[in-house]
Simulated scan of single mutants.
Amino acid sequence: MQIVLGEGAHFLCHTYPNDPESGPILVIDTSGVTFRLTNRVRGGVEVGDVRNARRLLEVVSRFVAEVERLHAQSSERAESAAESAA
């Protein structure tokens, strides 16, 4: 799965369902920087990997909530300004 965020920013998740020895690889590639995240030990996902993935999900979820909140706030201001101008 690949997600493109703006020009030159890509988020990918490589999975290998037919190869249990290979864990997933999360890749963030943007502005000349590439970040790869995978499990610590090749050949198996450990409990620490699961905890880290859950922490990552929590952080990303907080980021999404804040982006949505700020967008809604911005939209409300824009609507108020349009109503005031009318």
Results as ranks from 00 to 15, higher is better:
Ser61Ile: 05
Asp29Glu: 10
Arg77Glu: 11
Thr15Ser: 14
Thr15Phe: 05
Ser75Ala: 15
Glu46His: 06
Cys13Pro: 00
Glu68Gly: 02
Ser61Phe: 03
Arg42Ile: 02
Ala78Gly: 01
Val41Trp: 05
Arg62Cys: 05
Gly44Cys: 01
Val60Asp: 01
Gln73Leu: 09
Ser74Ile: 00
Ser84Pro: 01
Thr34Arg: 15
Ala65Leu: 06
Arg62Gln: 09
Ala82Arg: 15
Asp29Ser: 11
Gly43Met: 03
Arg40Tyr: 08
Ser74Arg: 11
Asp19Glu: 14
Asp49His: 06
Arg54His: 09
His10Val: 13
Val4Ser: 09
Ile25Cys: 12
Gly6Cys: 06
Ala65Phe: 02
Ala85Arg: 11
Ile28Pro: 00
Thr38Ile: 00
Ser31Arg: 14
Pro17Ala: 07
Val41Pro: 00
Val60Thr: 10
Ser80Ala: 14
Arg77Tyr: 08
Ser74Lys: 07
Ala53Trp: 11
Ala78Thr: 06
Leu26Thr: 06
Cys13Val: 15
Leu56Gln: 04
Thr30Leu: 09
His71Arg: 15
Gly23Asn: 05
Pro20Asp: 08
Glu58Phe: 10
Ser61Val: 04
Val60His: 02
Glu79His: 08
Pro20Gln: 08
Glu7Ala: 11
Glu66Cys: 02
Glu46Cys: 03
Glu7Asp: 12
Val60Asn: 02
Thr30Glu: 13
His10Asp: 00
Asp29Phe: 01
Arg42Asn: 07
Phe11Pro: 00
Val33Leu: 13
